[in-house]
């Protein structure tokens, strides 16, 4: 038997995780939110691995500094603006 209140405890834990680790999912996550996180993680990883940055720089024939700058800029809104909010979400 689950103790009363454990459900809330799990919720609190999840909330803690979400605040600690950017990108942690939740039950009401939509497709856009998820894919944006995927993109941001990917871009961050690409600019953090020196070899990966060089690889992209070679392909695009740009300097490594510009490649890094472009990757950071692409983290801002990688998949376009978020979809309109469903009015039912707030109910």
């Amino acid at each position: 038997m689950a103790l009363p209140g454990e459900r809330f405890h799990v919720l609190a834990q999840l909330e803690h995780l979400q605040s600690k680790y950017t990108g942690t999912g939740h039950a009401d996550m939509n497709r856009h939110e998820w894919i944006v996180n995927q993109h941001r993680d990917t871009r961050a990883s690409q600019m953090s691995h020196p070899g990966m940055t060089s690889f992209i720089a070679i392909v695009e024939n740009e300097s490594r500094a510009r490649t890094r700058f472009n990757l950071l800029n692409r983290m801002i809104q990688p998949c376009g603006p978020p979809p309109d909010k469903n009015p039912l979400d707030d109910v």
């Binding site: 944006v36 950071l72 983290m75 801002i76 809104q77 376009g80 603006p81 978020p82 979809p83 309109d84 909010k85």
Partner: peptide
Amino acid sequence: EYDYEDCDNDPTAVSV
């Protein structure tokens, strides 16, 4: 720094 919080919550793409 670049703060993207507004951009993430604005469907109209004005804040970007």
